[in-house]
Design a protein around this nucleic acid. Structure first.
Lengths: 124, 124
DNA sequence: TGAGAATCTGAACATATACTCAAATATACG
DNA sequence: CGTATATTTGAGTATATGTTCAGATTCTCA
Protein backbone atom coordinates (compact mmCIF):
# COMPACT_ATOMS: atom_id res chain seq x y z
CA UNK A 1 0.00 0.00 0.00
CA UNK A 2 1.36 3.38 -0.93
CA UNK A 3 1.00 5.82 1.91
CA UNK A 4 1.66 9.24 0.50
CA UNK A 5 1.76 12.58 2.18
CA UNK A 6 1.16 15.92 0.56
CA UNK A 7 4.21 17.72 -0.66
CA UNK A 8 4.22 21.46 -0.19
CA UNK A 9 5.23 23.12 -3.43
CA UNK A 10 6.08 26.78 -3.98
CA UNK A 11 4.15 28.05 -6.97
CA UNK A 12 3.41 31.60 -8.08
CA UNK A 13 4.51 32.73 -4.65
CA UNK A 14 1.93 30.51 -2.96
CA UNK A 15 2.22 27.35 -0.93
CA UNK A 16 0.40 24.57 -2.75
CA UNK A 17 -0.35 21.11 -1.40
CA UNK A 18 0.11 18.37 -3.94
CA UNK A 19 0.15 14.62 -3.53
CA UNK A 20 0.47 13.17 -7.00
CA UNK A 21 2.81 15.45 -8.88
CA UNK A 22 2.61 13.19 -11.92
CA UNK A 23 -1.17 13.34 -12.13
CA UNK A 24 -1.28 17.09 -11.69
CA UNK A 25 1.37 17.45 -14.35
CA UNK A 26 -0.44 15.16 -16.77
CA UNK A 27 -3.77 16.88 -16.21
CA UNK A 28 -2.12 20.22 -16.89
CA UNK A 29 -0.46 18.92 -20.04
CA UNK A 30 -3.70 17.45 -21.34
CA UNK A 31 -5.70 20.55 -20.49
CA UNK A 32 -7.36 22.18 -23.47
CA UNK A 33 -6.62 25.81 -24.30
CA UNK A 34 -8.20 28.33 -21.98
CA UNK A 35 -10.15 29.86 -24.84
CA UNK A 36 -11.72 26.58 -25.99
CA UNK A 37 -12.53 25.71 -22.41
CA UNK A 38 -14.38 28.99 -21.83
CA UNK A 39 -16.25 28.66 -25.07
CA UNK A 40 -17.27 25.12 -24.23
CA UNK A 41 -18.51 26.24 -20.83
CA UNK A 42 -20.60 28.91 -22.53
CA UNK A 43 -22.22 26.33 -24.82
CA UNK A 44 -23.19 24.22 -21.84
CA UNK A 45 -24.38 27.30 -20.00
CA UNK A 46 -26.65 28.12 -22.92
CA UNK A 47 -28.36 24.77 -22.39
CA UNK A 48 -28.36 24.98 -18.61
CA UNK A 49 -31.41 27.19 -18.31
CA UNK A 50 -34.84 25.50 -18.53
CA UNK A 51 -36.23 28.22 -20.78
CA UNK A 52 -33.34 28.09 -23.25
CA UNK A 53 -33.30 24.30 -23.17
CA UNK A 54 -36.99 24.18 -24.00
CA UNK A 55 -36.50 26.68 -26.80
CA UNK A 56 -33.74 24.50 -28.21
CA UNK A 57 -35.90 21.39 -27.94
CA UNK A 58 -38.82 23.15 -29.61
CA UNK A 59 -36.68 24.39 -32.49
CA UNK A 60 -35.60 20.82 -33.21
CA UNK A 61 -39.07 20.42 -34.64
CA UNK A 62 -38.64 23.32 -37.03
CA UNK A 63 -38.44 27.10 -37.02
CA UNK A 64 -40.69 29.19 -34.83
CA UNK A 65 -41.38 32.86 -34.21
CA UNK A 66 -41.02 34.69 -30.90
CA UNK A 67 -44.66 34.88 -29.98
CA UNK A 68 -45.25 31.18 -30.64
CA UNK A 69 -42.34 30.30 -28.38
CA UNK A 70 -43.71 32.66 -25.73
CA UNK A 71 -47.14 31.07 -26.01
CA UNK A 72 -45.69 27.60 -25.82
CA UNK A 73 -43.50 28.36 -22.80
CA UNK A 74 -46.09 30.54 -21.13
CA UNK A 75 -43.69 33.41 -20.48
CA UNK A 76 -43.49 36.93 -21.87
CA UNK A 77 -42.30 37.58 -25.40
CA UNK A 78 -39.68 39.86 -23.92
CA UNK A 79 -38.20 37.05 -21.86
CA UNK A 80 -38.09 34.84 -24.95
CA UNK A 81 -36.43 37.59 -26.94
CA UNK A 82 -33.76 38.05 -24.28
CA UNK A 83 -32.99 34.35 -24.26
CA UNK A 84 -32.97 34.15 -28.05
CA UNK A 85 -30.43 36.94 -28.14
CA UNK A 86 -28.32 34.91 -25.77
CA UNK A 87 -28.54 31.89 -28.05
CA UNK A 88 -27.92 33.98 -31.14
CA UNK A 89 -24.82 35.59 -29.63
CA UNK A 90 -23.41 32.09 -29.32
CA UNK A 91 -24.43 31.30 -32.91
CA UNK A 92 -26.66 28.47 -31.74
CA UNK A 93 -29.74 29.81 -33.49
CA UNK A 94 -30.26 31.87 -36.62
CA UNK A 95 -33.13 33.94 -37.96
CA UNK A 96 -35.06 34.18 -41.19
CA UNK A 97 -37.30 37.14 -41.81
CA UNK A 98 -40.61 36.82 -43.59
CA UNK A 99 -42.45 40.12 -43.52
CA UNK A 100 -42.88 41.34 -39.98
CA UNK A 101 -42.07 37.95 -38.61
CA UNK A 102 -38.71 36.57 -37.53
CA UNK A 103 -38.38 32.81 -37.64
CA UNK A 104 -35.80 31.27 -35.38
CA UNK A 105 -34.14 27.93 -36.08
CA UNK A 106 -31.14 25.94 -34.84
CA UNK A 107 -27.87 26.97 -36.41
CA UNK A 108 -25.73 24.16 -35.10
CA UNK A 109 -26.02 20.40 -35.49
CA UNK A 110 -23.91 19.73 -32.44
CA UNK A 111 -26.42 21.45 -30.22
CA UNK A 112 -29.08 18.94 -31.16
CA UNK A 113 -26.55 16.15 -30.60
CA UNK A 114 -25.71 17.45 -27.17
CA UNK A 115 -29.35 17.55 -26.18
CA UNK A 116 -29.93 14.01 -27.49
CA UNK A 117 -26.97 12.55 -25.62
CA UNK A 118 -28.03 14.43 -22.53
CA UNK A 119 -31.52 13.01 -22.83
CA UNK A 120 -30.17 9.48 -23.07
CA UNK A 121 -28.33 10.09 -19.86
CA UNK A 122 -31.35 11.45 -18.04
CA UNK A 123 -33.57 8.61 -19.19
CA UNK A 124 -31.39 5.74 -18.09
CA UNK B 1 -47.02 34.08 -49.66
CA UNK B 2 -48.82 33.41 -46.41
CA UNK B 3 -49.48 36.59 -44.49
CA UNK B 4 -50.55 35.64 -41.03
CA UNK B 5 -51.51 37.75 -38.10
CA UNK B 6 -51.31 36.81 -34.47
CA UNK B 7 -54.41 35.31 -32.98
CA UNK B 8 -55.19 36.33 -29.43
CA UNK B 9 -55.98 33.25 -27.40
CA UNK B 10 -57.37 33.08 -23.89
CA UNK B 11 -55.27 30.73 -21.81
CA UNK B 12 -55.06 30.34 -18.04
CA UNK B 13 -56.89 33.60 -17.76
CA UNK B 14 -54.24 35.41 -19.79
CA UNK B 15 -54.25 36.85 -23.25
CA UNK B 16 -51.68 35.03 -25.35
CA UNK B 17 -50.53 35.97 -28.82
CA UNK B 18 -50.06 33.01 -31.10
CA UNK B 19 -49.47 32.83 -34.82
CA UNK B 20 -48.93 29.18 -35.64
CA UNK B 21 -51.30 27.25 -33.45
CA UNK B 22 -50.19 24.00 -35.08
CA UNK B 23 -46.53 24.55 -34.31
CA UNK B 24 -47.19 25.55 -30.74
CA UNK B 25 -49.36 22.51 -30.30
CA UNK B 26 -46.78 20.19 -31.82
CA UNK B 27 -43.97 21.65 -29.73
CA UNK B 28 -46.09 21.16 -26.63
CA UNK B 29 -46.93 17.60 -27.58
CA UNK B 30 -43.31 16.72 -28.27
CA UNK B 31 -42.08 18.40 -25.10
CA UNK B 32 -40.31 16.07 -22.72
CA UNK B 33 -41.58 15.67 -19.16
CA UNK B 34 -40.91 18.62 -16.88
CA UNK B 35 -38.84 16.46 -14.58
CA UNK B 36 -36.53 15.16 -17.32
CA UNK B 37 -36.17 18.65 -18.67
CA UNK B 38 -35.09 20.07 -15.31
CA UNK B 39 -32.69 17.24 -14.73
CA UNK B 40 -31.16 17.73 -18.18
CA UNK B 41 -30.72 21.43 -17.52
CA UNK B 42 -28.94 20.58 -14.28
CA UNK B 43 -26.52 18.29 -16.11
CA UNK B 44 -25.65 21.05 -18.54
CA UNK B 45 -25.38 23.53 -15.71
CA UNK B 46 -22.88 21.25 -14.01
CA UNK B 47 -20.67 21.57 -17.07
CA UNK B 48 -21.30 25.27 -17.57
CA UNK B 49 -18.85 26.47 -14.96
CA UNK B 50 -15.17 26.64 -16.00
CA UNK B 51 -13.99 25.12 -12.73
CA UNK B 52 -16.35 22.16 -12.88
CA UNK B 53 -15.67 21.67 -16.57
CA UNK B 54 -11.93 21.54 -15.92
CA UNK B 55 -12.46 19.12 -13.07
CA UNK B 56 -14.48 16.91 -15.38
CA UNK B 57 -11.84 17.10 -18.09
CA UNK B 58 -9.08 16.30 -15.61
CA UNK B 59 -10.94 13.28 -14.24
CA UNK B 60 -11.19 11.84 -17.75
CA UNK B 61 -7.51 11.04 -17.31
CA UNK B 62 -8.16 9.08 -14.13
CA UNK B 63 -9.07 9.58 -10.52
CA UNK B 64 -7.64 12.46 -8.51
CA UNK B 65 -7.78 13.72 -4.96
CA UNK B 66 -8.99 17.14 -3.83
CA UNK B 67 -5.65 18.74 -3.19
CA UNK B 68 -4.26 17.66 -6.57
CA UNK B 69 -7.24 19.19 -8.32
CA UNK B 70 -6.79 22.36 -6.29
CA UNK B 71 -3.12 22.50 -7.20
CA UNK B 72 -3.87 21.89 -10.84
CA UNK B 73 -6.60 24.53 -11.01
CA UNK B 74 -4.77 26.94 -8.76
CA UNK B 75 -7.75 27.54 -6.51
CA UNK B 76 -8.44 26.68 -2.87
CA UNK B 77 -9.18 23.13 -1.79
CA UNK B 78 -12.39 24.42 -0.27
CA UNK B 79 -13.57 25.74 -3.63
CA UNK B 80 -12.77 22.39 -5.23
CA UNK B 81 -14.61 20.56 -2.49
CA UNK B 82 -17.70 22.71 -2.97
CA UNK B 83 -17.74 22.04 -6.68
CA UNK B 84 -17.14 18.34 -6.20
CA UNK B 85 -20.11 18.18 -3.90
CA UNK B 86 -22.15 19.78 -6.63
CA UNK B 87 -20.99 17.16 -9.13
CA UNK B 88 -21.51 14.36 -6.65
CA UNK B 89 -25.05 15.49 -5.85
CA UNK B 90 -25.79 15.00 -9.53
CA UNK B 91 -24.08 11.60 -9.49
CA UNK B 92 -21.57 12.74 -12.08
CA UNK B 93 -18.55 11.80 -9.96
CA UNK B 94 -17.96 9.17 -7.32
CA UNK B 95 -15.37 8.70 -4.60
CA UNK B 96 -13.06 5.97 -3.46
CA UNK B 97 -11.41 6.24 -0.11
CA UNK B 98 -7.85 5.08 0.49
CA UNK B 99 -6.75 5.99 3.97
CA UNK B 100 -7.10 9.70 4.55
CA UNK B 101 -7.44 10.34 0.90
CA UNK B 102 -10.57 10.53 -1.20
CA UNK B 103 -10.14 9.82 -4.87
CA UNK B 104 -12.70 11.32 -7.22
CA UNK B 105 -13.53 9.84 -10.59
CA UNK B 106 -16.23 10.18 -13.23
CA UNK B 107 -19.37 8.19 -12.50
CA UNK B 108 -21.07 8.63 -15.82
CA UNK B 109 -19.99 7.76 -19.34
CA UNK B 110 -22.40 10.22 -20.89
CA UNK B 111 -20.66 13.10 -19.21
CA UNK B 112 -17.44 12.31 -21.02
CA UNK B 113 -19.44 11.96 -24.24
CA UNK B 114 -21.06 15.33 -23.74
CA UNK B 115 -17.71 16.99 -23.23
CA UNK B 116 -16.25 15.31 -26.31
CA UNK B 117 -19.13 16.33 -28.56
CA UNK B 118 -18.97 19.81 -27.14
CA UNK B 119 -15.26 19.97 -27.87
CA UNK B 120 -15.85 18.95 -31.48
CA UNK B 121 -18.27 21.80 -31.77
CA UNK B 122 -15.89 24.34 -30.32
CA UNK B 123 -12.99 23.21 -32.50
CA UNK B 124 -14.73 23.43 -35.83
C1' DT C 1 -46.54 58.20 -45.06
C1' DG C 2 -48.58 56.79 -40.97
C1' DA C 3 -50.79 53.35 -38.12
C1' DG C 4 -50.30 48.72 -36.63
C1' DA C 5 -47.73 44.44 -35.75
C1' DA C 6 -43.73 41.80 -34.17
C1' DT C 7 -39.70 42.10 -31.87
C1' DC C 8 -36.03 44.21 -29.25
C1' DT C 9 -33.84 46.92 -25.54
C1' DG C 10 -32.60 48.87 -20.99
C1' DA C 11 -33.45 49.43 -16.22
C1' DA C 12 -34.76 47.33 -12.09
C1' DC C 13 -35.27 43.64 -9.05
C1' DA C 14 -34.98 39.20 -6.99
C1' DT C 15 -32.58 35.01 -6.95
C1' DA C 16 -28.74 31.95 -7.67
C1' DT C 17 -24.03 30.89 -7.40
C1' DA C 18 -18.82 30.73 -6.88
C1' DC C 19 -15.45 31.97 -4.04
C1' DT C 20 -12.95 32.92 0.60
C1' DC C 21 -12.25 32.31 5.39
C1' DA C 22 -12.75 29.98 9.67
C1' DA C 23 -14.03 26.13 11.90
C1' DA C 24 -15.72 21.23 11.99
C1' DT C 25 -15.25 16.14 10.51
C1' DA C 26 -13.06 12.05 9.44
C1' DT C 27 -9.22 9.07 9.11
C1' DA C 28 -4.41 7.51 10.14
C1' DC C 29 -0.83 6.49 13.09
C1' DG C 30 2.54 7.19 16.88
C1' DC D 1 -5.83 8.49 23.21
C1' DG D 2 -3.94 12.70 20.89
C1' DT D 3 -1.91 14.94 17.09
C1' DA D 4 -1.48 15.52 12.12
C1' DT D 5 -3.53 15.16 7.58
C1' DA D 6 -7.27 15.43 4.06
C1' DT D 7 -11.52 16.95 3.22
C1' DT D 8 -15.93 19.10 4.25
C1' DT D 9 -19.11 22.54 5.90
C1' DG D 10 -21.35 27.07 6.88
C1' DA D 11 -21.50 31.92 6.87
C1' DG D 12 -20.64 35.88 4.37
C1' DT D 13 -19.96 38.46 0.17
C1' DA D 14 -19.65 39.89 -4.43
C1' DT D 15 -21.13 38.89 -8.92
C1' DA D 16 -24.05 36.88 -12.49
C1' DT D 17 -28.46 35.91 -14.34
C1' DG D 18 -33.59 35.48 -15.57
C1' DT D 19 -37.69 37.83 -15.54
C1' DT D 20 -40.85 41.77 -15.90
C1' DC D 21 -42.20 46.32 -17.26
C1' DA D 22 -42.17 50.26 -20.13
C1' DG D 23 -40.76 52.15 -24.04
C1' DA D 24 -37.99 52.06 -28.46
C1' DT D 25 -37.20 49.77 -33.18
C1' DT D 26 -38.15 47.71 -37.41
C1' DC D 27 -40.91 46.35 -40.95
C1' DT D 28 -45.45 46.00 -43.52
C1' DC D 29 -49.11 47.56 -46.06
C1' DA D 30 -53.34 50.30 -46.57
Amino acid sequence: MTKKKAKIVEEDGCQVRMIHLDRVKRARDEAIPEKEMRRLALIFKALSDPTRLQITLALQGGEMCVCDLAAMLNISESAVSHQLRHLRDLALVKTRRDGQMLYYSLDDDHVADLVKIGLNHVRE
